[in-house]
Amino acid sequence: MIPNITFVIQGVAFFAVVWLVMKFGWPHIMAAIEERQQKIAEGLAAADRAKAELKDADARVADEIKKARVQAAEIVDKAHQQANQIVDKAKADALLEAARVKATAQTEIDGMVGKARETLRGQVAALAMQGAQKIIGREINADTHKALLDQLVAEI
């Protein structure tokens, strides 16, 4: 029980082990642990970043979709407008054309009416002359009574 010189050797041996562990053991294992901790921290940070990026991308995608929708609606609106314009224009054109055709027809009719009137006038004049000849019994010189005839025709 009473200590002998052994304790000196035990103390020195203990110190030697402490020194060995301090020099060759502890730094290595601590470096490994710290490196792993750092790696884990980095991995977690990367995962967080990726998550944030994904969220960002999702938001961007939603934005794009919204924009595309708005654009599509705009395009549809424009198309409608254009269609309306085309229809309106076509309508206007058709109306114009109709008016033109009507005008042409009218002039034609007018012409024809005039011509028919002329013809009728001529015929009336001839009939009048024939009637007058029959009444008078002799031929009326058309040339001498031209002014009279013309006046008659104009009166009819």
């Binding site: 060759f24 290595h28 470096a31």
Partner: peptide
Amino acid sequence: LFFTFVLSALFCLLFIGIARRARV
């Protein structure tokens, strides 16, 4: 002294051996 030496050597071998070959 003998058992101290044996166990210290065992401890050193175990700890330092593992520490030097520590994989991350």
